[in-house]
Simulated scan of single mutants.
Amino acid sequence: MLSEVEEYRLLIADVYELAGLSRRTSEDLAREVGQTAARWHVLSVLSDGPRTVPAAARRLGLAPQSVQRVAGDLVTSGHLEAVDNPDHARSPLMRLTPLGRETLSELFSRSDDDRAAVLARAGVTAGELAVAREVLRRLTGAMR
């Protein structure tokens, strides 16, 4: 029987492996609509409301500079808009535009069938995913 620390290390390795595989399939799906996985990720992290670039970067686990570059590209392409941030004049909030929402909706709809097939092959239920997410959220909270 493995200790909690050993199980944690194996869990993190599995999360990284899953994230890498998911990124590769996301890249293929995004390319079909003229996007990249990086752009998809930034659009997705802003789907529940405006955020600053640093806040989006924290959520994605990336450096703010890399998210700033992608966000800048998305503003230029009309997918995002920068709006005034009442809490920080020098750090605007990034918000999805109608084009950004439409693109994100297209990306999600293209990926839903693919993800559903993966979940079916794995025999994973919504309840199991909810438990896994709760464990990951608790670990994330403890690390913060």
Rank of each mutant, 00 (worst) to 15 (best):
A89L: 13
R95C: 00
L80M: 11
D87Q: 14
T36E: 10
A56C: 00
L119N: 09
R110K: 15
A71Y: 00
P50W: 05
P92D: 02
P50C: 06
Y16R: 15
F108I: 04
R115K: 07
S44G: 04
L74C: 03
G34D: 02
L43P: 04
T103M: 10
A130H: 13
P50T: 07
D28W: 05
D114L: 14
L62H: 15
Q68M: 02
G34V: 08
D48F: 03
F108S: 00
T97K: 04
R138Y: 04
R115I: 12
G72R: 03
M1Y: 04
G61E: 01
R58F: 00
G78E: 03
H41M: 13
L96R: 01
A142E: 12
Y16N: 13
T76N: 02
G20I: 08
Q35L: 15
G49N: 00
L74I: 01
L104C: 07
L139Q: 11
T140R: 13
A132V: 08
T125P: 09
G20W: 12
H41L: 12
G100D: 03
L60K: 00
A19T: 06
D87C: 06
R90C: 07
G20E: 14
L107I: 02
R69S: 10
R90F: 11
A30C: 08
T103A: 11
H79Y: 09
V45G: 03
H79V: 05
D28Y: 09
A55T: 15
E17R: 15
E32R: 15
G34C: 08
L74E: 06
G78A: 09
T25K: 14
R23L: 14
V67C: 09
P64T: 06
V67R: 10
R69K: 13
V124F: 02
L104W: 04
A126V: 13
A57G: 06
E7L: 14
E81Y: 01
W40Q: 10
A116D: 15
L18E: 03
